[in-house]
Simulated scan of single mutants.
Amino acid sequence: MEASHAGDPGLFGPSSVAWQMHGDPMMWVAGIRALYLQALHPRVVRGVLQNSDFRRDAWGRLMRTADFVGTTTYGSTEAAERAGARVRKIHSMLAAKDPGTGERYGVDEPDLLLWVHCAEIDSYLHVLRRSGVPLTDAQADRYIAEHRVTARLVGLDPGGVPGDRAGLAAYFEKVRPELTAGPEAREVDDFLQSPPIHPLLIPARALLWRRVAHLAYAALPPYAHELYGRPGPPPATVTRRLRCTGTLLRCVPARLRWQLPPKHIIRAMSRLGPGSRPAPYKLGA
């Protein structure tokens, strides 16, 4: 399918910061941090839990988010626009109910979409930079600005979306009074600490998953730790663990990692040529 779009750089293209960053394996840790952060907005997490069986499908939700990020970053323009249209259509059909007031509201309310967007972008940027991806402040600002494109895809007005680190920080400061670790957030927290799995995989859960989930939780901002009521390790310890984990994961050859489905990066390189290969060192080029 991508062959018919040969030469199409998509919405971002190889010269973007997102193109170089989103192939990094620490994006998985960042995705779990984003889930932790998103769950602190009661109206957002209520919409998730009331419209899906989160405990059974949390892995599927992570995979769908990863597929959306991969498609919008590395796919053709048509594929990215199609992915955005699919998300908007699904959201337009879903609603949630506030158990306290009885109010019903759409999950596609702009305020809710904006929280999900900002929590994701902040998490990707925070985890990758802190784990060792060489990104200047100017490049970080550019990364945030680039993602106004994905904000448009999910139904937001790009002009109302933070476009740099200062704007993102101001947004979080403004929203913080609305955040709380209510029962729904606790449910997400419980799941992420100990997801239900086949008995034969319990040792792997203890060895691998919990370490990743704990690292993602540790990377949250201090106010999130306060709301969840579970303090994080000292910042220097968290940074050291993120760097060690990033170094370890980046030892796995990229070509091997990119062979895993759905192969967004491999297909992008087939469409645009080997020179489009993502690599953080290209950010300084």
Rank of each mutant, 00 (worst) to 15 (best):
D164C: 12
A58I: 02
R56Q: 13
S270I: 02
Q38N: 05
V45C: 10
L40S: 09
E146K: 14
S15R: 14
L128R: 14
L156C: 02
F54E: 14
R230I: 07
L49V: 13
A80R: 08
T72G: 07
R267S: 09
K282G: 15
S4E: 09
S4C: 01
S276F: 01
C251N: 15
W59C: 02
W59K: 08
A213Q: 03
L94A: 09
D111V: 09
V17S: 11
A279I: 01
A95P: 00
L192K: 11
V48C: 05
L227F: 07
L49N: 13
V133E: 02
G284F: 14
P262Q: 00
L113T: 10
P162F: 05
Q20I: 13
E173K: 15
A185N: 11
A34Y: 08
P177N: 06
L283C: 12
L201P: 06
L40G: 10
L227H: 08
A66F: 08
T65S: 15
G47P: 05
M27W: 00
W115R: 00
A85F: 05
G60Q: 11
M21F: 02
T136G: 02
G75R: 08
V127E: 07
V29F: 08
L94G: 00
Y143M: 06
L156S: 05
E81W: 05
E109Q: 13
D24K: 00
N51W: 11
H264I: 04
R186C: 08
L156G: 04
T72M: 03
Y74K: 09
P177R: 00
A204M: 09
V107F: 10
R82C: 07
V212G: 01
L168N: 06
A169E: 13
Y105A: 02
Q193Y: 11
P195Q: 10
D24A: 07
A34K: 03
Q259D: 05
D111L: 10
E226N: 04
L249C: 13
F191Q: 07
R230E: 14
H225V: 06
Q38K: 08
R255E: 08
Y36M: 00
H41A: 04
V48R: 11
L49Q: 06
P274W: 12
L283K: 11
E109M: 06
T136P: 05
D24S: 01
L112E: 13
R250E: 15
A96L: 03
H264S: 04
R250P: 13
D157R: 09
L153I: 04
G232K: 01
H126N: 06
Y217K: 12
Y228N: 09
A58F: 02
A169L: 11
L40A: 13
G7E: 05
G84F: 00
A268R: 03
V48H: 10
L200T: 13
R56F: 01
R46D: 01
